[in-house]
Design a protein around this nucleic acid. Structure first.
Length: 746
RNA sequence: GCCGAAGUGGCGGAAUGGCAUACGCGGUGGUCUCAAAAACCACUGAGGGCAACUUCUUGUGGGUUCGACUCCCACCUUCGGCACCA
């Protein structure tokens, strides 16, 4: 997610020189903005030959200088509209592309083509250079824009799927076309005499061209799109490979339409060859693609392969065409490699009240002056007036705004923009180490060495991109400054899930499924609520609330209470050694399980282990072990392990059992592997992976004995009849798997 | 569209490549009670069988393996986040 947020894009910058509308005598670089080239960023330099227009963001600084006087008003109107649109946060999701021509032209540096310059709000000033080249044949947005505003669309990259399509008008050909297509093995469909052909690869395209030319009637044409863009006429083929051919094709087709008296055809309204093709619904998915294919119609670069098969996707400039063109641009000084990031620095300068003030002062005499360290921190005023102006209330707070210049003592004003709250939350964990530390560095280095980096971060997934991304950046800066010796602020991250309502939906007032924990705290106790939240499911996944589920936890707590405090009715005899060993075994097995689960944040299974332990204790209570030293250890261990989950009940039980205050400061129970070890184990016996029996054996059984015992199991023997044993596998402590092959009777 | 997480009984869920369904909820039967609730005990994936036992089952389809909920490939569905990013 963070990778996506940072949005690293590898591409190229390219300079386009503009023809300015009013060529004034220019006195050189220091004179004016006019000679500045328009710099664009693209991830597809290999499509440069297909750039048929340019688009600048409406706020682009060169717009004013480039706009012709006749279009100045239209441009100003559009810019005003665009600026209002960003205010309503671009509500429309897939809105129509809009834009206006500003009257100026730029020169495509690779082929000298003169391309119009537009402004459009689909280009954003904040990303890249705020200017793009429009390559409509290979960029979805540019395609939509060009189609709408009749800009030429020229394919310069071959499709990688080889798809080509052709539509044939019924009257355009003489009879026999379907038969000829079928004979050549070409795929097509017919509807009411209209023929829809789908081709694969250039060989099929060429075969198809021959067939069509043999059947085409004078005065008609047939088009092919996709792997090839060609228009077949009775006297030849025209390829859509330049702005000139675009115009020529369009003119010829429309003349033919008029000759046939089709004055109402939508094709007559088409302003480009591509728009003419767009009138055929069947063509829509073949007119545009963004593949890394071989370069076509690209001068000397035509034929350069696009994708390099077998190259790891992470490799820089792994597409040969992209690399070759970029290097060529760099050699000629008109472009070069560039990496761009989506992530914007919007932590500083926000026009709102909440956030740390930026400690800067504007003085008419001294310029921008930092607030002296002794006067830090600059605090927000308590009495700011919030008014519906859309601006920060700090602007209108005279007491805050007006100050004196720390350099000259004259009247000055404070910066009224603030920093985003992420600015503070990105490093508070460093500040918290020693909040009142006074020294030349931000925190006590000794305390930092002890506490940092943070061992465990717990938070919601909603912080995965913003907060966690910024805090990582802060830490990398602190590292570069030599303040911390590590790279990442937190050693381990854990996102807790969301607890849903009883109906498996997110809790919300409108759904009426909000659970108020206080209701349950007052009846079942805070420990029940806390424990149930931990028991619902994996901590990172959250889960659904259940009003009956929490009663199960309440019952569990009661059972433990009764087990620990109430004596059984019958007086106990002396326990056997085996009974004691059994109790100690389950005690120590539970210690490992619960300890491991806590370390992995698997609270639900830790609780399940405690429940199993409790069930075992309830059974043991009716035996002679009750009251023995092992029993005391088991009960105390139970209470100690409950403490993090049910702190109040655990404290109360601990005291009643004679423990020293507090249970929460006791050492965690120690695990003894010897006591936890099984004396007897149950081996599963499988035949070809299917369980056919179980054998109980001493824990220290050797492989041969185990295999032999497995083979003697009655049910196993039954399944071995008529079978040939191929192999016997032994997994110590777990199972024996007998691999057999069907024999005899079969 | 892109990124991320997840699909297992009636429900929430458990399982270092080795007994699928632990634990809890719900359900059924029982004990206690005049009765009910609570508590306690037993059973509880589906099909077949009197039973021993057996077949099927972890979203779908393939693969690796003696053995796959778990690993690999393709797909489907759900949820969360981002989205005109050139």
């Amino acid at each position: 997610m963070q990778r996506n947020w940072i949005g690293r894009s590898e591409g190229a910058w390219v300079n386009f020189h503009a023809e300015y509308p009013q060529p004034e005598p220019c006195r050189g670089a220091a004179c004016c903005a006019h000679p500045a080239p328009i710099r664009i960023f693209t991830t597809r330099p290999d499509t440069l030959w297909g750039a048929t227009f340019m688009v600048l963001a409406p706020e682009h600084p060169l717009v004013d200088a480039l706009t012709t006087p006749e279009l100045a008003q239209a441009v100003a109107d559009y810019r005003f509209q665009a600026s209002r649109q960003s205010e309503i946060e671009r509500l429309a999701v897939n809105k129509d592309k809009t834009g206006v021509f500003i009257g100026a032209y730029a020169i495509n540096p690779v082929n000298g083509a003169r391309v119009p310059i537009w402004i459009a709000d689909y280009v954003m000033m904040a990303y890249g250079t705020g200017a793009i080249m429009g390559v409509p044949a290979h960029d979805e947005r540019d395609f939509a824009f060009a189609l709408k505003y009749a800009l030429p669309i020229l394919p310069v990259i071959q499709r990688t799927d080889g798809l080509a399509k052709s539509y044939v008008y019924p009257a355009a050909v003489r009879p026999g076309l379907p038969q000829a297509l079928a004979a050549a093995g070409l795929a097509f469909e017919q509807q009411n005499g209209h023929t829809f052909v789908t081709l694969q690869g250039l060989d099929q395209v060429n075969a198809y061209i021959d067939i069509v030319r043999a059947h085409l009637l004078p005065g008609y044409w047939v088009s092919i799109v996709g792997a090839a863009f060609a228009f077949l006429f009775d006297d030849g083929i025209m390829h859509l490979d330049s702005a000139e051919s675009d115009a020529a094709i369009l003119a010829r087709c429309q003349t033919l339409l008029r000759d046939h008296g089709l004055t109402h055809s939508s094709a007559l309204r088409a302003r480009t060859a591509m728009e003419l093709l767009w009138t055929v619904q069947f063509y829509h998915d073949a007119l545009f693609h963004a593949d890394y294919g071989e370069m076509i119609n690209s001068g000397a670069f035509t034929g350069t392969p696009g994708d390099a098969a077998g190259t790891p996707a992470q490799a820089e400039y792994s597409q040969p065409a992209k690399k070759k063109v970029t290097d060529w641009l760099a050699e000629r000084g008109i472009g070069g490699r560039e990496v761009t990031y989506k992530l914007r620095d919007w932590l500083i300068s926000r026009q709102r009240y909440w956030g740390a003030p930026i400690p800067m002062i504007y003085c008419n005499k001294c310029g921008i002056v930092p607030v002296p360290e002794a006067d830090l921190p600059v605090l927000l005023p308590d009495d700011a007036q919030f008014m519906p102006t859309g601006e920060s209330p700090l602007i209108y707070h005279e007491g805050f705004r007006n100050t004196t210049c720390p350099v000259c003592g004259g009247p000055a004003r404070r910066e009224t923009d603030t920093m985003d709250t992420f600015m503070c939350s990105s490093w508070y964990h460093y500040a918290y180490i020693s909040p009142y530390y006074k020294g030349s560095v931000p925190w006590d280095p000794a305390a930092g060495a002890y506490w940092l980096p943070v061992d465990q971060y717990t938070g919601g997934i909603e912080h995965a991109t913003m907060h966690l991304l910024y805090t990582r950046f802060f830490t990398k800066v602190l590292r570069d400054l030599g303040l911390v010796p590590f790279d990442e602020p937190m050693v381990r991250l854990f996102n807790q899930g969301i607890i849903l309502g009883e109906d498996n939906e997110k809790m919300s007032k409108s759904r009426g499924n909000v659970v108020n924990p206080d209701d349950y705290v007052s009846t079942l106790g805070a420990d029940s609520v806390r424990a149930f939240l931990m028991f619902i499911g994996p901590w990172e996944e959250g889960g659904s609330w259940s009003s009956t589920g929490i009663e199960g936890i309440y019952r569990f707590i009661n059972r433990v209470w009764n087990t620990a405090l109430e004596a059984p009715e019958q007086a106990a005899a002396a326990p056997t050694e085996e009974e004691i060993a059994d109790l100690l075994r389950i005690t120590h097995k539970t210690i490992t399980r619960v300890t491991d689960d806590f370390e992995r944040f698997q609270f639900n299974t830790a609780l399940a282990a405690l429940m199993e332990f409790s069930n075992a204790l309830i059974k043991a209570k009716d035996t002679a072990v009750y009251g023995s030293a092992a029993w005391q250890e088991a009960i105390r261990t139970m209470v100690l392990m409950m403490a993090p989950i049910m702190p109040h009940v655990a404290e109360e039980l601990w005291e009643r059992l004679g423990g020293e205050y507090s249970v929460h400061t006791q050492a965690w129970p120690a695990y003894n592997a010897e006591l936890a070890a099984d004396r007897v184990l149950t081996l599963v016996v499988q035949i070809n992976g299917k369980v056919r029996g179980r054998v109980e054996l001493p824990a220290d059984v050797d492989e041969e004995t185990a295999k032999a015992a497995a083979m003697e199991n009655p049910n196993v023997l039954r399944h071995l009849e008529q079978q040939q044993v191929v192999k016997v596998l032994y997994v110590p402590g777990r199972l024996v798997n007998i691999v057999v092959r069907g024999g005899g009777s079969g």
